[in-house]
Design a protein around this nucleic acid. Sequence first.
DNA 1: TCATTGATGGTCT
DNA 2: GACCATCAATGAG
Length: 184
Amino acid sequence: MVAPYRPLPVSFYARDTVTVARELLGKYLVLDAPEPRIGRISETEAYPGITDRASHSSRGRTERTQPLFGPPGIIYVYMIYGMYYCCNVVTDTPESGGAVLIRAVEPLTGLTGKTSGPGLVCKAYGIDKSFNGQSIVTSRLTVCQLPDESLPLVVALPRVGIDYAGPDKELLYRFRIADPGRLV
DNA sequence: TCATTGATGGTCT
DNA sequence: GACCATCAATGAG
């Protein structure tokens, strides 16, 4: 573990997916390594599960979506467009199939290149499919908070790149830390 | 500044 | 064979 960062407990993830997505903002994504990589989570998306057509788990249980139907606090990594990985954390109950996508972090320590966008977050942390199915609480990759944490101001927006999801694409399930220098 | 497009491969039908 | 929870480079305005 990287002092003074403390991993959030499994109970944090064992709650409603939208709540977890909101509360992940301002927390820290920490890769424990000889040279730790640390960033502050600034954008997430909630994929509540089988009742949401944008969630991978709504298409049913397959080999790829298996982790989504496991216990909360599991890392779900998949490849998209043949070139990028996306990093999710499984939430709620195993039956829900819910998860939260980590879309962007603000780099703090040991991160090179841009980190705004799910593909870039994975690239900057070196996250690949070997992280799939691991624990976000006990593996090298954790989400942490500091002892003196304060809650950031949050903006809700529609999710990105899910035109196929029908009415569910309108849901305000994307969350971002409010940036005083930007309107949206 | 904004819209368009090419790169690229796993997953599902 | 179609579809993708994306990004960077390009070119027009």
